[in-house]
Design a protein around this nucleic acid. Structure first.
Lengths: 198, 198, 198, 198
DNA sequence: AATGAATGAGCCTTCATTCAT
DNA sequence: TATGAATGAAGGCTCATTCAT
């Protein structure tokens, strides 16, 4: 049992570090955030971090993996009858509000940029995105099945793909134009979501 | 005329530096690309770069500004009858092909991420995006006017906004899933573009 | 107590750095002395210095402040009956002998030159000099009071001023003519000091 | 004759450079003044300076030598009956006024500090000071001879030495306390000069 | 488990100096 | 004679990482 306690402690420490790192990465970017700043944010010594992570890069990787896991969990939790448009609007609101638990758009962009340089990150992201899209397509098919008009798997995949583009494009927009007109955003979603998810 | 030659040389040097920097930034990211690596790519000494740019930051800024100018020029060159879907497909093809002249998707992501930390970059990007959207909306209105169904300015703006999201989301996709299924991409565009630009 | 030890260590490190820096500054001048050379003289890595001082400039400032404090302490320790002429001769002997604890004449000149460029140093020096002069004038008044002929405050200040000039001029001399004739120096002091301090 | 013209031109160029360098050295110090700044102040290209001087160090040396020559000329021009106290007051006034032609006090301090590092400069300064002192002692002897009380050579030398200390000490004072009380300065000179030069 | 002192490599930048023109 | 582009060597400083305690 002491092993479990120890493990729990280790997990908690890792978590403290990852949360602190996330904050620092969002604020300064992966490269500009120093281990010292992460240590300070995690309220521990810089040296201690290396007991839980091999390197700064390992922290980045862990953050990315955790992010992907959360995304997948979100989709798995989708109810067939969910009001998807509302969920997207909520998501964007969280982005704009700087919510701590949701994927941070700036971090999302940096993570993505990193993928074109680090093969490990690249395959993690592309695999995750494929799975996510597939999960979501399944959800679309089931939702359609419960309605009057069924949807083919291929059609669902294409729509899932379009939604990925739209939502991620929205993330880019939020970062580049933080004070984007709210009504235009709502109009845009109202115009596109019904077409896409039916 | 010797002044022109001199100016030409200076302009050529600046250009050499910017191209080299672009390559380095794409390969390693803004922060990880060292002035030394840029100098090597530009085939000159590191010190010489400072005759043409005040700092590494100034180079980043110059690249961003040039990128924005090109984007705007592209939109200004749009013909009313242009086959927009085709153009988007071409654009994506260029992204995938690593075209040197088009906006590089990875660079685009880093630039965007940078905006959430550097106010100067932030305002440059948000201003540029606003202008671009407005220009494109104008193009949409004119195009619609030449057809049977006119389009309100507000509607056009919303559509332009949606297109920004779609295209930039596509850029994200290309970076994260470089070997995305080509047909799915075509299907997606075929499904969405007609709705958006009419 | 471990805190005290830690603080002691930090203070000792700061001291090591300041001593090393002093040596380097004397040998090469403020500007020509590199952080690397200071680090080597202090037998530590260059990076470590920055744990104890914010910048090279901060080191210069610390050295200056320490120097000023010591000067003031010296004057404060002056006994009313002190043989001042002897003290000046001792001082000059220390200068010539390259004593490590006394104000180094070369450093004194560089510090002074620096004052005409750095406002912070300028005000530190001018303030210190004013205080030093005032302290010394007080000493002169008291000394005169214990004798038969009292001395006015203004008179004392003027004499203190003259002594500053004389001693600092002597410092300049020692630097510019290191092998100045010892007897002439003694004669000069014998001729002037009695007039000045009475 | 064209050779003479050429030489004149060369001399004029050297002079332009030295004046510019002097300004820069005063403003920024020997080390901090860049060749580029000197070139700009001399209104010529940086490269051209190297046609007239071997190196930055050579410029420093030339300035020092010129300074020494001027000092000696000043003393040689002293009239036996000159009001020396007045001359010293004038000198100090020029220092405070930032006169361009007189020896600049800050430069004087830097030059002196340099002497403890560069043997060439060291010997130039010490030789010059010795000669200057001797010249001035001769002047003192002659002046005394024209009065009622003759002065021995040794006595004159000691007094000349004392004056060097006093005046150079004054230079230090002016640099360190630019807004020194004018009356105190006058009092000090009135108290000391009569004793020294008789 | 935890600290934080210490290192060393590397970064951006400056600048004296050279040289083709 | 004159320019100014170009170089290369430092220089000050930061920071990921290690290690004695």
């Amino acid at each position: 049992m002491s092993a479990i306690i120890a493990n729990d402690r280790a997990a908690a420490q890792r978590d403290r570090i990852l949360c602190a790192a996330r904050q620092c990465f969002i604020e300064h970017g992966f490269h500009a955030a120093s281990m010292a700043s992460i240590a300070e944010a995690a309220d521990m010594s810089a040296g201690l971090i290396y007991r839980y992570f091999d390197s700064k890069n390992a922290i980045i990787l862990a953050i990315i993996e955790r992010q992907l896991a959360e995304k997948r969990a979100d989709i798995a939790a989708l109810q067939p009858g969910a009001d998807f448009a509302q969920r997207v609007r909520d998501l964007v609101a969280k982005w704009r509000g700087g919510d701590v638990r949701t994927m941070n758009p700036t971090l999302f962009l940096e993570m993505s940029a990193l993928a074109s340089r680090d093969p490990q990150i690249a395959s993690a992201l592309s695999e995750s995105d494929r799975v996510t899209r597939s999960d979501f397509a399944t959800w679309l098919v089931q939702r359609a099945a419960s309605g009057s008009v069924p949807m083919s798997a291929a059609d669902a995949e294409t729509r899932a793909f379009a939604l990925q583009c739209l939502i991620e494009g929205l993330a880019v927009r939020i970062v580049r134009e933080p004070d984007l007109s709210e009504p235009m955003l709502a109009d845009m979603l109202a115009m596109n979501l019904p077409v896409l998810i039916r």
